[in-house]
Design a protein around this nucleic acid. Sequence first.
DNA 1: CGAATCCTTGAGTTCCCTCAAGAGAAGTGG
DNA 2: CCACTTCTCTTGAGGGAACTCAAGGATTCG
Lengths: 236, 236
Amino acid sequence: MEATRYIKAVPLFRDLDKEHIEELAFFASELTFKRGQVIFSEGEQARGFYILTKGRVKVFKVSPEGKEQILHILGPGEPLGEVAVFAGERFPAGAEAMEECTILFLPKDAFAGLIKKEPAVALKMLAVLSKRLRRFTMLIEDLSLREVPGRLAAYLLSRHLQAQGDPKMVHLDISKAQLASLLGTIPETLSRILARMVKEGLIELEGLRGIRILDSQGLEELAQGLRRLSSKDEIL
Amino acid sequence: MEATRYIKAVPLFRDLDKEHIEELAFFASELTFKRGQVIFSEGEQARGFYILTKGRVKVFKVSPEGKEQILHILGPGEPLGEVAVFAGERFPAGAEAMEECTILFLPKDAFAGLIKKEPAVALKMLAVLSKRLRRFTMLIEDLSLREVPGRLAAYLLSRHLQAQGDPKMVHLDISKAQLASLLGTIPETLSRILARMVKEGLIELEGLRGIRILDSQGLEELAQGLRRLSSKDEIL
DNA sequence: CGAATCCTTGAGTTCCCTCAAGAGAAGTGG
DNA sequence: CCACTTCTCTTGAGGGAACTCAAGGATTCG
């Protein structure tokens, strides 16, 4: 098992000394998941938590009618299911591999012991949880106070900032159906709103995954609720 | 200043030894707020965090149009604004006193120092943040996957469990306008839905703040999306 | 008692969801 | 390479939930 190498690469354990890393590695187990496989389910008893080393994972809630709301999309290096370790014992949401994944599992006790000995790890974990709270705060704001066009505009702009290469181009790294679920809507609605944005000259679609930002000013106004997309088809 | 006495009463610091409590007390300052006063605003730079010792506080987001979404209602003993200490430096939401409040302010550094020395405090803080994440997860689920009647039913049932005295009686400890904001809706909608619940024999209103649960089974079904309130006025 | 706040009710509108069908892209196997 | 399935995305028609605006009761407080 290559666990020590993986553990070293995790930001949470970045500055940990060799001894502790080896201790963690001793208790850790390495798991792999195929696209679509369930990592854990909502309500399941947690015996530890996970650290993603390869691939991407979605954490989500599902309604009785089958509508899905994605809470997070996690990438390599990020911890997963940690909430159940510190409070409540049960996973508050489900997690599923979005593609081929490699994941380390750390039993609860091994990690709890480390935290008591290493305040630096505790502080980093506090930072991780704080960032998640911040993200959730934004998601709640989106769902409660913004309409779908505003959420989409905010999403495009945030992706826009991280963009490499052509600065006006956003490449979606998830399907539109998944993006809809992340924004708290459904694919049909997302599709219609993208079409309206195109009609208003805010963006341009390039292939299935490409979106070119034509008017970031206009998107900004949408995101802040200062502007609306015209709902009626215009009479030309 | 009575800070040591207050600090001892805070669950977060319950088992702390005298020395550390006095150290905290030395750096802490005691503040009071009247109903409606702002404790901090969204986006403001955080120089520390707060612990509520008396009264209640709401943490909330506001949309450009003025709609408010309450994220938390906090009571005595609960920490406030802690997210900004561990990540991001700025408060992700605003906080306002709902009634006369007494609050301790702890500068960031004093607390960071304590956490490094006392793993038990770090663990408790991790538990606090985890519980908040859990609450937010539920709120996101409510906003995205449930309709207002379902949210209200879930709220009533959760209050129902904590109820003392008459087990079928829920006494609202906040105004209906605030409850609406907590559920992610507006007073008019809440009012209408309460009226519909009465008409269907699920509850009974007693005065402004009293709600008698008549059919907790029915509320349960509503909360789980297995039942709907009839939308049309029935023809009698 | 009057002022202010809180709550309710009505009418109208908007957003977005549901259901349904079809177009486009991608992967599989003969 | 093409027919096949399969998945993803788009578009249309219709409806329902919840919001806005507006006004009228109810309750509290000075």
